[in-house]
Amino acid sequence: MTYKVLIVDDSSFFRHQIKSIIDAHPDLTVIGEASHGREAVEKTLKLKPDIVTMDYEMPLMDGITAVREIMAKQPTPILMFSSMTHAGARITLDALDAGAVDFLPKGYENVAHEQSLLRQQLIEKLLHIVKSHRRKTTAPAVPAPARPLPVAKAGVRVRAPELVMIGTSTGGPVALQKVLTQIPASFNAPILVIQHMPAAFTGAYAERLNGICPLTVKEAEDGDSFAAGTVLLAPGGKQMMLSAKNRVKIFAGDDRLNYKPCIDVTFGSAAKYYSNNVLAIVMTGMGSDGKEGARLLKARGAHIWAQEGKTCVIDGMPSAVVKADLADDIVPLDQIAGKMVAMTKGS
């Protein structure tokens, strides 16, 4: 099946480069281009693409306004291109709030290079996003009896957690915001968050969360300690692991690891200091990061949750945990916060 892509950017050079990358893949085809947000909305309504790539700074109508209008008039998966700056991060987070699914760094030199990582990431993200969206919109209302949905394990009782860890990727910034804004300041455990995100973004994201959450949220620094009522966000481009029961170590990490930060690294390090008094949650994202870390924690008696697939932007990571039989519970996004609070109260 060939998926239709609409490219939106005021740079004809960038549109040409992106088009050449997309059209070279047999499962993707560019059906149109737009040079500003107003044209993007018009062409989305007319051409009905399967996915849209969107720039932010454009004449007549900016990218965030275009995202809002598209999601109101013709809901369509949108992949943003963002500058790798603090200001670019804040803009991209606004675009995700407006309804965009994910983002990629915008670099003319990167996209022009035939072997660039950006080219690989563009194709990977487009296909994962559009296939996930297609499955959700075309799936039957009732699952076929031959392939029942996995169900949460019943009757599992655990101690109120001394530590909560949340790992997430694509779709995570908005999903995490929905969870953390519902956690009261009296929450009786620290929370460590590992979100796949570039180095330029995590500081801005931590600032945003700290401004809207009852909890205190900060980007983790080497040697930080953590306590109840606080959230530490792993810094982008680095790894975060526990160096003691209530302290984190931030370091560059091995370049052979696909993700910086890596959920498996943080989860796995916690297994050294915690046993059945830790709750680890794997939320929306591509791939399977978090599965092996969850396996190590599970061996120590930790409680593992996976976000319910139909409430994920992409359910690769939670599904990997479920398929490995590591999930003690499968929780819809809108119930995660409430269950976290109940667990820390011993319910």
Rank of each mutant, 00 (worst) to 15 (best):
L242Q: 08
A160C: 06
R159E: 04
T311Q: 01
N110C: 02
D254P: 12
S132V: 04
K245T: 10
M1W: 10
L297W: 13
H25K: 11
L180P: 06
G236R: 10
R295C: 12
M58R: 07
V265D: 03
M1V: 14
P235C: 04
L326C: 08
I314D: 00
R300F: 02
G293Q: 10
R134Q: 09
S20H: 11
R135N: 05
L6V: 06
G32C: 08
K131Q: 13
A72P: 03
L127W: 06
L96H: 15
S347E: 15
A337C: 01
Q17H: 09
P143D: 13
I183L: 13
L209D: 02
A342F: 08
Q195V: 11
P140L: 05
A139P: 01
Y259P: 08
G338D: 08
V101L: 05
K153Q: 03
I336F: 05
S243E: 05
S275L: 10
D334M: 02
V248W: 09
Q177M: 14
A327V: 01
A204K: 08
K43H: 15
R119D: 12
A112G: 13
L104Y: 12
M61N: 06
G287S: 11
R157E: 08
R300K: 15
M71N: 11
M61D: 07
D62C: 02
D325C: 00
Y205M: 07
L176T: 10
V5F: 08
V278K: 00
I330R: 01
Y205G: 05
G253F: 07
V231K: 07
D334G: 00
A112W: 09
G237A: 12
D9P: 04
S275Y: 12
P49I: 04
A175I: 06
P214V: 06
V101K: 06
G229S: 08
A95S: 13
K260H: 14
S243Q: 04
N210R: 04
